[in-house]
Structures are given as C-alpha cells and as structure tokens.
Nucleic acid binder design. Structure first.
Lengths: 332, 332
DNA sequence: GCCCCTCTTTGGACCGTTCCAGAACCTGTC
DNA sequence: GACAGGTTCTGGAACGGTCCAAAGAGGGGC
C-alpha cells in the first residue's frame, strides 16, 4: 500500500530499474517499444518520483527556498511572480517560508529550507539577522530581494531604486507647483534612502528650506499622527510624500479629519503601489517598485550562480515608475 | 567542501555513525561524555542533518504541505498562524505553495509537495479542481481549510460558519432599526451560504419582502457597480451587507459618490475582517472568521489522522464574531 | 576466576533514486 | 564466421541518514 517505486514500475514493464530511470529522465538511448512499456507501467501504477531519494542521489534538489519576511505585507506577490516565471522555465521549484511565523516559535526560519538542502535561497525583505546570511552564502547562492540593507559578501542584491523613486515623487510635486513639501519618513535602509533622496531633490531645486520631515513609523497610525502635527504647523505644507502607502492612508485620514480636501487642498503620495493604493476609494498616487522585474532579476542572479558559483555579490536596482492617481494636484 | 555528514561527525568525535545518530535523536542510552563529544564535534563542524536522507530512511518527512489558493488574498495569514503554532509544537514543519503562481505555469500546484512526500496536506481556500484531492487523500491526511465547497470522501474540512456570520450581520442591522436591507452577493459556496443565510434571517424577522439581493463579483468594482444600481432604486435600502470587505469598499465609494454619508445615511457591513477593513480611513464593520481557530483545528485534524489514519472526513465550523466599527448606525 | 546481566556501542541492511562501467545485443564487413 | 563498432540494457555502488541485531564493556555475586 506504499507508493510505487521505480522497481515496481520496472517489474511491471519487464525491464531493469536502470532503464526505467533512463526513460523517466528522457534519454533517447531507449528503444521506442521499451519506452512505451515503461511509461505505460508508470501511468498504470500512478508512479511519482520520490524527491528525497532523487535529491539524495543527485546532490541537488532543483528547488530554491524563498524566505519571506512577513506574509502580512503582500507587496512581494509580484516579485514572487517574476521569480517563479524564470525559475520554472529552468525546471526549478519554489518553496516558501515565512520568517515571521517561524520566528515566533523561536527557531531560525531558514532552518527547514537549509535542512532540505535547497539549491539556492531568495530572501525577500529585511530579515532580523542579515549577518547570518553570510554563513549560508558560503554554501549556496543567496539573493536578497526587495531590501536595501547592507549585504554580507557573496550575496547578490536586487531591489527597487528608492532614490530614484523618491526623486520621481518629489519632482512630480514640484512640477505641479508645490513648494512647501513634507516627507513622512520611515525607518530602516529603505526609509533612510527615500528621505535622503527627498531632501537632496528639494535641495537641487533650491527648496531646501521648504522641505519638512516628520517621522512616522511606517504604520497607518504613525502616518496619521505625523500628519496631524504637520498640518497644525504655521507653515502648513501643501503636499505630503509618505514613505509608504499605509502611512499615506494614515495621512489621508488626518487630512479628512481636519477638513482638508485631497487633492484640492493637500496632495498626498505613497510608495509601493500596494493593492490598498489601488482601491478606488483611496486611489493614491504612488510609486511602483517594479516587483516583477526585481523577481526576474533575482532569479537571473541565482541561475548565474548555479552555473558559476562564487564571486562577488552583485547589486541591481530596478527602475521604479510613478503611478499618478487621484491624490495629487496643483496646490490651492 | 561539501556539507559535513554524520560520518564526519562520528570520525571527529571518535565514535561510530550509529552513536552519532543516537545522540542526535536524543537517546538516553548514551554515556554523558560520549554525548558531549558528539555534540561538540557536530557544533564544530556546523553539522546539519540532511532532510532528504532522513525522510528517505524514516519514511516520513515531518513536514506538512500548505497549498494556498492565492497569496494576493491574505485573509489566511491568521489561519497559517494557528496552524503553525500547533504543528510546531508537534515537531512538524510547514511548507507553503501558491496554487495561483503554479497554475499559470500549467502544472498541478500540489505536485512539488507530493513529490516531497509531505506527511499531510492542508489546502487553504477554494481550488480549481477539488476532486483531485480525493486521490491525494487516499495516500495522506488532507484537510481543506477556509472553503465551503463539497469535499471528497476522507477529507476533513474546517472553515468559518458563514451562515452564522451572515445571521450576525443581518440581526445587527435589524437590531439597529434597519428594514430595507440589501445584500451584495458573491459566488462560490461561500457566496451562496452567506446569501441564503441573509435571506433566511430576513424571513425569520418577517422582512422577506424588504430584502434585496444584487450580484457583485467579489471585487471592488463589482461592489461599486452593484451599489450604484441599488441606490438608484426607488426603494433605496438603508443598509448594505457585502459578501466581503473588498466589495464593501466598492460600496463605500459608490455611497460617497452619490453624496450619502456612511453610516448616517447608509450602513455598510463587510466580511472577513481583513487588514483593509481595519484601516481607520475605512473602519468597516465586518465579520471576523476566527482564522486562528480554523488553523488550529485544521492542525488538530491532521494530527489525529497521523495517529489513526483513514476514517470519514469530518467537518468543523468555527464560530465567527461581529466586529462593529464605524460603518453601521441606526437608519436616518 | 567465571558467569550472568545490564548498559553502551557498533556494523550492516535498508530507504528510492542516479550514475557508471560493462554486458548483451545488433548490424555490417571482410 | 569472426570481428568491429554502435546501440541498448543492466547490476551494483553511491547518496546520508535510521534502525536492528548483536558485539563489547563493566559490575555484581558466587
């Protein structure tokens, strides 16, 4: 009653297990009638290859592990999509693990993937302990995707270009005629890059003294509170660039509560082009991080390292695009 | 340069590989000094057990596969959380696969999990081909979680009680004083159950002739359009119960566009208690499907079947709760 | 000093594949 | 009919663990 093995198939087809193996791996050194017999026997028995046995023997799993930092922030779905399309074309599977779920249980979220001896690892988003990746990278290709934290040697890195994205936003607002522009800043490498680029762009347009930065915490509540502070200033800004969409939604609530119309009285911009920003009820102007392209590039890096292991870690920044929707307009 | 094996550890510790195996599996039949030596050697070499080899030998993987129907609908995150907590307590790992990603590539999304010989399978949400589960269930425990479609024999099923949820909503609205109540219906088993329960509850309160049903398609756009139709009726309803949160957001847009204030002029209720419903800008009254409890119960079913394989498929419905937020009030 | 018993430790078979060296089988040539 | 050379097929050794039967070590009693 146990699943059939290659030997069961061999017996039924009246050949050796080696021949079955040859047929199933698509060799052309097999006489057609034997091939037919083997395939028929496999079909009749409902044979499925045992991945454990195969990878033990082949010393590879044809599987890459994908470690997500948090399933609750589904900005990475496009990224996975891009990743999967390329990996699948090369006969590789993806296995997902969620760092947040496993962290709570106290173990390293990558452990199950490493024990499975995945052929490579894609880390999506920022991990609590990025240094640990260095040790892993010595044993298998590792790509960090969608995070901008510094990377241990030998790890490739792919992400959206946050500096360019923040510049696009800031120039969009300046182009609309805004001068007093505020930024709701976030934390982490990404938060830092977006803020710096905002400041640099304002400076480049001679608006350094009109730029305001308030700290949010990348939550809706943080965005709300920071915006209330901003809008109560004597020199109230006419536009707000939030570090991400969720902060921007908080800003939207604050504006509404204080009786400001968006975008007529106040322009708002988010970042990430999340599904939330696409709700017609919100319809946020935002930045699309080219997740699909990031995913494809991550797959590319991985495939390259399968062919030529070792070497320096390479970086790649994908060009983001501005999604102009309903929350930006010229200042009043 | 290949990862160390149990033999490398044995050699370094000066014992046989069998003893290493005993120590690593926590046997108490080992003299403390040997145990110490083995553990030290394993640590020094950075030894990690090879999951493929182990599962080949043990004939089990200590891993359950989780097949998600679509990562883009993250209502299942609580469910995974509940699932993981119980599985982890029993030394089992979770491996995720996304049906939608793999479907696009033309293969059965469960294939990689089956080839890995996972010990059990949890299917989260509705699959395109539920009948295929029957064949799988003959070989391993299978639980369908968070879907209400009919289930092949031998498959357990856990989900929120949609009938009760819809009743809670409808009675909440009736209790507030609403009489003309509309339902934005969805499709699938869940859509059907919620609609039927809405109609039954209205009937039970003698309001059968005040109940209206409009079909949405479980998208924001569908909710928007259905609501526009509703609100242009001569006997405009004073409350709308949407089949899910995203449809409810569409309804919210429509109401706003037609100049109706929510909840003063129109009450709205969603379903699923998604993160979207919790945005303070929307703050939808909605139904929480007890995802955590559903996940725990799914794990329970799985664990039971590991102990006693076979037997009928069992159903379990978790009791949902009403989350009263900002979109419901007495009628004008 | 020997025997018995218990506690530790070990070698080897096995799990289901792949891969390789070589066997077996053709076909054609001289 | 022997031989060469190619094609097709097969047995057995990995791969890295687990598990079992049995060997070895140590202690106690006579």
């Amino acid at each position: 009653m146990r699943p059939p093995t290659i030997r069961d198939v061999a017996e039924r087809a009246g050949v050796s297990k080696s021949l079955v193996s040859l047929v199933l791996r698509g060799s052309d050194q097999v006489r057609p009638e034997k091939r037919e017999a083997v395939l028929r026997a496999a079909r009749e028995l409902g044979y499925r290859p045992n991945a454990a046995a195969r990878s033990l023997s082949e010393q590879r799993t044809r599987t890459v592990g994908v470690l997500l930092n948090d399933l609750r922030n589904p900005w990475f779905v496009d990224l996975l999509d891009g990743l999967n399309s390329l990996l699948h074309a090369h006969g590789l599977h993806m296995l997902l693990a969620d760092a947040r779920l496993n962290r709570r249980t106290g173990q390293d979220p990558a452990d199950p993937l490493l024990d499975l001896r995945v052929d490579g690892l894609v880390v999506v988003g920022t991990l609590p302990d990025p240094a640990a990746l260095g040790a892993v990278a010595a044993r298998m290709p590792v790509v960090l995707a969608g995070a901008r934290e510094p990377v241990p040697p030998g790890v490739d890195q792919v992400a959206g270009d946050d500096e360019q994205g923040a510049r696009l936003v800031t120039e969009h607002l300046i182009g609309l005629g805004h001068r007093r522009i505020a930024h709701l800043a976030g934390y982490g490498a990404v938060g830092e890059l977006r803020r710096r680029s905002f400041e640099a762009t304002m400076r480049a347009h001679g608006l350094a003294d009109r730029a305001v930065v308030e700290n949010g915490d990348m939550t809706e509540e943080g965005g709300y509170r920071a915006t209330v502070r901003l809008l109560n200033r004597p020199d109230r800004p006419t536009a707000v660039f939030a570090v991400n969409d969720i902060t921007c939604v908080g800003a939207l609530s604050a504006a509404e509560e204080l009786g400001l119309r968006v975008p007529q009285d106040l322009s708002l911009v988010g970042y990430d082009n999340t599904s939330i920003s696409r709700l017609r009820h919100l319809w946020l102007t935002t930045v699309d991080n080219a997740g699909h392209e990031v995913g494809r590039r991550a797959a590319r890096f991985l495939l390259d390292r399968f062919e030529r292991p070792g070497g320096e870690g390479r970086p790649h920044l994908a060009a983001p695009t501005l999604e102009i929707r309903g929350t930006t307009a010229p200042p009043p």
